[in-house]
Structure formats: structure tokens, C-alpha cells
Amino acid sequence: MSQAALEREDLFDAAFLDRLRSLAVRLRKRRALSRRGAQSTPATGFTREFKDYRHYTPREDYRAIDWRLYARLDKLFVRLYEETQELNLHVLVDTSASMARPFGEKRRQALRFAVALAYLGLAAQQRVSLYSLSDTVRQELPPLRGQGNIEKVIQSATRLDFGGLTDLERGFTEFRPTRQRYGVIFVLSDFFGRDVNTASHAIQRAAAWPGETHFVQILHPEEREPRIEGEVELDEVETGERRRFWLTRRDVQRYSETFDAFCDTLARECAAHRMDFMQCGATEPFEDRFLDLLNRGSALAGGV
């Protein structure tokens, strides 16, 4: 049994997929009670679904004139049709080393979120794209549609290589979906950059993205409150930089305060740009947190 297979079982076992399916059903039922039809928009288009009439104005396409109505009423009307829009789902997974080491739970949680989101998107006949984000952003999967592609998503997620540095600013700059690829963007990351302010700057760049953006910060509890004291040599997994510290309890407390301030800044920055920000513990139960995410009013949840 290969290492990839092992990890696949660990991440997406059969039980997980079953739970995912039941989750999708639950969501669909809930949506069905509250809404009718799929993703209608106020705009008119060229589908076969008739929507309304309107008086003809010069320079409009004369092919839209309803000649039968003209014969009855002697007035020119044009027919308006329902326009349906295809939704794109972009899932960006932070694949820097800090997401896999020293706390592997972060990687597991991020990939579970990614697969679950992709599953929901595919089930809702949306185009799902998977990206890896480290020092740059790479498209790991082309836009896929249809529930049958979930296996491809899982395989791709399993193959993601977690390592290297985080460059949020560069990644968020390079990731710029076109107008046609308008949709919902999920960023799964710990948002640890080279500097305390890097993440805030990156979020400002993400404000220009077309669509609905969700940031999910995945953290391990020990990242907020490290259980270390005394003389230690800290080894940063991304850069390999080592520094010696003599940490007292008071130092750890001040560390936690700094960490909380960082997270608060991220949340404020997201709120300022009307983007969703959610914090998720790497060791927290996945389903609860995933439902929390969907309950925050995502278009994805509405489309299922």
C-alpha cells in the first residue's frame, strides 16, 4: 500500500464521503423548502425559459419581436427570456510547509474542507477549480463539473505537495479569475506570512476578486498557546530559521496576545472589504465547522 493511498484513506475514507453525501442531501432539502428553481437572476438572457414582454425600442434585435402579438394588438413587443448563470467555485488551499508541519492536523482539515466544498459544487453542477497556494498560486485542477468528478478532486487533493514558503501577496495578486469565471472563492490557509502585515495587505488585494470570497483560517490550538517554556531552539518549518529563546510563562502569554491581535486584524480587514472570515481549529470536529461555514450565507450553500 503506497503512502498516497494511506494518506487518502486518512483524509477521505468511505465514512467521510458518506457523511459528505448526507450533508449535501440535507443542504439540498433545506434549500428546496426556501427557494424555487436554480440560481435565477434578474437579468434576461437567451435561454428557452420565457420571462416577460417589453415594448420594442429602436435598435433592439428585431428577431425578438413577437409577431403574433403584433398581429393581435398592433403594437411591437419583444419577448424576454430567463437567463441562468453558471457558477464557478474556486478552492485555494495553502500548501506551504506551515500547513503540514509540525501540526499535520491542519493539512487534514484544510483538505477535508477543500474536498467537501468541491463535492458540494460538483453536486450543484457548478464548475469547480482547485488551486494550491504557497510562494505562488497554481491551478491543480481545471474547472470540472458534475458529481462524477469528485474522485479527480480527491486524487488531486491527495497529491498536493505541502512545502515551501508562503507568499500571500504574490499568490493573491496572481490569482485573478476572469469576469466569466465569476463565482465563489474559498481560501483555506493559516495566513502566516513573512510579516505580521502581509496577510492584511494580501486581503486588500483579494478585495478586487470578482465574486464571493471566504477566508477560512485553519489553526492548531498550540499555535495560539504554545506549550513550551524555558530554553528552546525554535525551528521554523518553512524557512528552516532557528532561534534560541528563553521563554517564561509571561512570554507565552504575551505571544498569545500578539497572535490574537493578528487574527483580529485579519477579521477586521475581511469585514472591511465585505469578505467572510472564519477561524477553524485543526482539531475541531470537521462537520460542525463545515456547517458553520455554509450557514454563514454562502452562495454555494444556496445553490445546492
Binding site: 505580521v196 530554553e231 525554535l234 525551528d235 532557528r242 532561534r243 493578528f262
Partner: peptide, 18 residues
């Protein structure tokens, strides 16, 4: 005794502490 080596996700906050 040598100092215990502890891998961390980031030194970002430790650095600001130090």
C-alpha cells in the same frame, strides 16, 4: 544540556516577542 529544539509553524510572533 542542549536547548530543546521545537519545530514551529512560524517565528512571526516569537520574533515580535523577542
Amino acid at each position: 544540556k542542549k536547548a530543546r529544539r521545537v519545530p514551529v509553524s512560524t517565528l512571526l510572533f516569537f520574533r515580535s516577542l523577542a
